[in-house]
Design a protein around this nucleic acid. Sequence first.
DNA 1: CTGAAAGCGCTTACAG
DNA 2: CTGAAAGCGCTTACAG
Lengths: 342, 342
Amino acid sequence: MPGSPLRLVDVAAHAGVSLATASRALTGRDGVSAQVAAHVRQVASELGYVVNLHARTLAGGSTPTVGLIVHEIGDPYFAEIASGVLRLAGAEQRMVQICHSGGDPEVELRQVRMLIAHRVGVIIVAGSGYTDPALQAEAKAELAAFRKGGGRVAVIGRHNLGADAVVPDNQAGGHAVAEHLLSLGHRRIAVAAGPERLTTVADRMTGIAGALARAGLTSAESPVVRSDFTRDGGRLAADQILQRHPRTTAIIALNDVMAIGVLSALRARGVAVPAQMSVAGFDDVSVAADLGPSLTTIRLPMAQMGELALELALKPPLSRLRRKWTGHQLVVRESTGPAPAR
Amino acid sequence: MPGSPLRLVDVAAHAGVSLATASRALTGRDGVSAQVAAHVRQVASELGYVVNLHARTLAGGSTPTVGLIVHEIGDPYFAEIASGVLRLAGAEQRMVQICHSGGDPEVELRQVRMLIAHRVGVIIVAGSGYTDPALQAEAKAELAAFRKGGGRVAVIGRHNLGADAVVPDNQAGGHAVAEHLLSLGHRRIAVAAGPERLTTVADRMTGIAGALARAGLTSAESPVVRSDFTRDGGRLAADQILQRHPRTTAIIALNDVMAIGVLSALRARGVAVPAQMSVAGFDDVSVAADLGPSLTTIRLPMAQMGELALELALKPPLSRLRRKWTGHQLVVRESTGPAPAR
DNA sequence: CTGAAAGCGCTTACAG
DNA sequence: CTGAAAGCGCTTACAG
């Protein structure tokens, strides 16, 4: 029965109450007797009434729509986060608008503005923050105004956005992978890193560098090669490491997608993993277990992080900022092994 | 400068024209001189004006928002399709609302209704159709009414939804994988299939069955094991094949995600791929090349399919239905090899 | 607790 | 080509 959608007046008429009363009943406002409210809701659901979101929003009601900003939805890290957000949003009867930032603070700002202009009720920024707070200063100001107007915000990662945050265990995770490789006897450990400006990269590096320094490795023994946070970036980084740091016996890629690129480059060059070179990643995207060889990595609960972020945003705001740490877990698989004897 | 958003009246005042003229200028309606229109647009962009979508939609204007229904965004097949949709939508200044159907026709119907109730302008249904048209009859009726009201619809896959469609080359692709395995000398080829009611499954099966029958394989030599269209489904199917059809030398999984599960189960059981068992998938998700062993599969251009679907939906509707075939490509990698000698 | 009325920011006939 | 006015379907002060 896909007829022309019925309006709140229709529901009101059926229920024998005024438009105002019907509105109050359905929005859960008080100012209606519980009986009348229940009756109206009953009638509405029997009629299959669905509020016109645009009318509601225009009239100043709250908007249930969630805006989610990711770097790139085709990246499994973000796809899994989005999956968590969608799951919870579905249960809460909320729609989710997803947009790409490409990991570019300017695009991110544009998307934030777009979402605000479209009057979403909730904004979730996933993906890394930027080590230079200036890069997010404008977005922070926009979001502050948005919150003042009743909007809700949560971020995933260490951002400078002044919002409740789900914070991945990046530093501790970095420490853990590095310790793992050291314990296998590696003393020449290279890092395939993503862009320097990302806090995710910086934090993981901090954890790794701390562990390596404590073990007495010099910077010549633990070179860092910068590249993109993508599969191709991983390939490039691996090639550079092989060329410039030929004594390397282990590579830590700062995320799994890069690690996949690293493995691919090593295979192309005929370098056996882990016999000649150990490789570790970060995130534990769902395919990590199925790679050839399966990937040792740090597990982060991406889908849960997405749910948690939405949950945070939906809670009544506190005067102080909330911060939820995700925890992490070292998952040892085939791609890491003892350092080759020399 | 995140102040309170400015309205069209403000732009009109700045430009020295009436509200109506400003509206016509910005929506591209005619009834304004080109000069005035250009001036208004200039002023609007200088002021950073962004239309209030809800007011526009309520007033009867067209809604730029795109609704995208996928089975599950965490599945790389859908993540890659979504990536294509988001890319084009971004270029067209459109927001995309994504929701999960879980591959369940009832949920799909509910989501279609939700999107219509939320007055999106475009609906894209990705994921397989259902072999039983009755399962989509209601959704088809809803979408027909939606289109009559000016809404635009496109689907990806062979649906019974009466809409323009991007149709993956499922049957021809199925034929091609089967031929590939036959050419390698396999005569005991099992299929790890997804749910029977999905047209994607049916079409891929048809292609495979045709090739196998032409080669003279009996149904005992080419058993079909049904399971979920997931990694776990693939594991289960592989275990069953090993148990009940021990002479099998090749397994075709009806999508890559299942193939990943098959590879995983075979590894757990110590079955060498491709020495003892060849494995092929379907889709060529981006990790297929990096699995251990890398996966022979049929490549479908997922991201492009997403773009194409949105492109179709955005074109002026034709009286007849449009149908775009995707093409396919057999990608041979390490997971398939000659049938083992007996 | 309930209802009549104003108003949210647009678009679109309707006049000129 | 341009403008004044009605109306989209809600919510929310404002009266009662």
